[in-house]
Nucleic acid binder design. Structure first.
Lengths: 211, 211
DNA sequence: ATATTGTTGGAATGTCAATTCCAACTTGGG
DNA sequence: CCCAAGTTGGAATTGACATTCCAACAATAT
């Protein structure tokens, strides 16, 4: 026991170069599988086969399946947010909002509307059954909503958006429209619902523009 | 084989009085469990214990687990829609829309924001993995969205809503706001996100009122 | 009442998942 | 080069789950 780490957690050991790579591969493979089949629907043997690792490697790096799920949530959060930058940090015009949302719609179409939102799907599955997962998901949505709110706040600070606009509520509403729209699109296999949902919310934001 | 039923389906036999009751009890119990733990997270033994039935009864009435899941989806759809009537059929004023949405917010609070939407949660879990479930869910959302659209259309026909308003898109957007708002509320354990999301969409509808 | 069909209990089966173990191998620092 | 720690493979364990079977029991129509 030479590493005095936090008690309770699997311990954050020192990883060798290859170790880090293996760990990453496991997370990415698990994320991909869990996106399509859900966390509960993805077994450790599934991940073993897809990532080309043995069971002991998974348990070595993540302790248990719940640990892996948490790592996947964090990975998806970082990954999805990174993918949306730098757009995500410049959501301070109606055009930027539309373009940003439209991009997600295009991706949804590209995959034939299979799968919803990487984070939203995990959220729906885990929010009630895994409290630590829920905590991570709260943080994930906050990190997502924050930049939206910031963009709107900048518009308001510049005097482009009415003082009466509640930027926090508008940001939440837009995120909700994205989530709900993605779900409807996933079920209907058409991105129309997503596009309509976000469009309505952005239209509403637009109506607060100071002309 | 005296009952010439559709091939492929478990056959719609004649049910005795007690049989119908058992069948209903299984569905309701399964619906309750699946609402909290998901369809995949609810095992047949779980349902057996909670409903006080034996395995053979479940397989007798539903063929297999997938059959039960489909029955649960239909039951939740009927049940949820019935619960919302008659409000659901009178969504032809801003006040009615607000009251209807507010009611769901109150229910969400009442259960401590645990669990999201009975239909939405199943949708998220099953849309990609079970095609017949997806078909039922498409129908469920259509049956839900229809009355919203009808209400808006009536407002428009009466000249209360601008001709420029796209009632179909607005109805979809409201349903998406409900779903996304419920998800965020479930994760955050606060109905605020739901209330903000639906409020923004209804505000937008309101902005189309012909004054 | 009686045969047919619906209903129920409970045990048995086969599969598969999560997790543990241990032994062998590699790597990096001193 | 050598040790401690990190890494890996593969087998073994344990438990749960979906599903099947069969035998007993009840209801219903003729």
């Amino acid at each position: 026991m030479s590493t005095p780490v936090k008690a309770g957690e699997p311990a954050e050991r020192r990883l060798t170069k290859g170790g880090r790579k293996t760990r990453e591969r496991i997370i990415e493979t698990a994320a991909e599988l869990m996106f399509h089949r859900g966390a509960g629907g993805t077994s450790i043997p599934d991940i073993q086969a897809a990532a080309g690792v043995s069971a002991s490697q998974i348990y070595h790096y993540f302790g248990d399946k719940q640990g892996l799920v948490l790592a996947v949530i964090d990975h998806q959060t970082d990954s999805r947010l990174a993918e949306q930058r730098p757009l995500l940090d410049s959501l301070d015009s109606i055009e930027a909002l539309r373009e940003w949302c439209d991009r997600a719609g295009g991706q949804q179409d590209a995959r034939g509307c299979e799968g919803g939102c990487e984070i939203g799907s995990l959220a729906s599955e885990l929010a009630d059954s895994d409290q630590s997962a829920r905590a991570s998901l709260v943080s994930a949505f906050d990190r997502w909503e924050g930049p939206i709110r910031s963009g709107l706040a900048r518009m308001q600070a510049r005097g482009e958006l009415s003082e009466r606009a509640d930027t926090a509520a508008l940001a939440t509403a837009l995120l909700a429209a994205i989530q709900g729209g993605m779900l409807l699109s996933q079920v209907r296999r058409s991105s129309t619902a997503y596009r309509q949902a976000v469009s309505v919310v952005i239209d509403h934001i637009e109506s607060h523009l100071v002309r």
